[in-house]
């Protein structure tokens, strides 16, 4: 089984993110592997463990994205590749998908391609479906469990309305949700191996493609308007008295 897992480097979910002088800043908060992509790597590793084969982690980004790849290696991926090219700064999701699809083609013969459901910086959740469409492969999104038999994969999807079971022929593209199970922690040995790993860098020329065109732009990024809330604490001598007062307040707010 040849498996690919796409991972992105993002500011930590606990970071305070603000716009300063028109630029996004997260202070000294660390950059980490996108939390959803940890689930993707976990799912990829489980498939490798069940069926044999290799997992290749791939990230597109600048040199710092190697840290996300090292995390994936430390979790147990066999190899990692960084795609980096000055022409790829600030591209939209379709352009990203073009590049990721080119990487899948260059690697060749992939059976399973895993994505996170969403990158927590841009919050798009679009790249996986676009990559699948470009490659002409089935898109099996929001996978809560995956089982492979021969060249057929069966997936339990977690959607708004409940659980849906779908099947498709491999190769296929997957996004993974939390129900899949918590991602493993890197082992001590894994961390040591990852620290020494040489991560090859592919440019657009290596992928054999031109810089893909982006049509989506974002001329302005803003801090959201400050919400002026002051908390009114409801007090009373008994839970009943507090509840009475609170219920009256909420009825007066006309939100019921």
């Amino acid at each position: 089984m040849k498996i690919i897992a796409f991972v992105k480097q993002v500011p930590d979910s606990a970071a305070t993110v603000v716009v300063e002088d028109g630029k996004v800043s997260w202070g000294d908060a660390p950059l980490v592997i996108n939390p959803w992509d940890e689930y993707a790597v976990e799912a990829a590793l489980q498939q490798k463990e069940a069926h044999g084969g290799t997992v290749t982690a791939i990230s597109m980004g600048d040199e710092s994205a190697k840290e996300a790849l090292k995390h994936a290696l430390a979790m147990g991926c066999n190899e990692a590749i960084l795609i980096s090219d000055p022409a790829l700064a600030n591209v939209d999701t379709r352009a990203t998908a073009e590049v990721l699809a080119a990487a899948v083609r260059k690697i060749g013969d992939a059976d399973m391609i895993f994505f996170g459901r969403q990158a927590i910086d841009g919050d798009a959740g679009i790249t996986p479906a676009q990559t699948a469409r470009i490659l002409g492969l089935p898109m099996l999104s929001f996978a809560a469990s995956i089982s492979v038999e021969g060249d057929t994969v069966k997936v339990e999807r977690s959607i708004e309305e409940g659980r849906q079971i779908v099947s498709a022929k491999l190769p296929a593209v997957f996004t993974v949700v939390k129900d899949f199970g918590e991602p493993r922690y890197p082992s001590f040995m894994g961390i040591r191996k990852a620290a020494r790993a040489q991560i090859p860098v592919w440019t657009l020329a290596d992928l054999g493609i031109e810089a893909p065109k982006s049509v989506v732009s974002w001329p302005e990024i803003m801090n959201p308007p400050k919400r002026e809330v002051t908390c009114e604490f409801i007090e009373g001598d008994s839970p009943e008295e507090i509840a009475e007062k609170l219920a009256d307040k909420l009825i007066a707010e006309k939100v019921l």
Binding site: A124, G125, A129, Q130, R133, M139, V215
Partner: peptide
């Protein structure tokens, strides 16, 4: 912006060589 909405939007943008403004 539902699970299906995101998926169709993204894939149609590929077919139509356009882009998606999400959520």
């Amino acid at each position: 912006t539902t699970t299906r909405g995101r998926e169709i939007a993204g894939m149609a943008a590929v077919d139509l060589e356009s882009g998606v403004l999400v959520d």
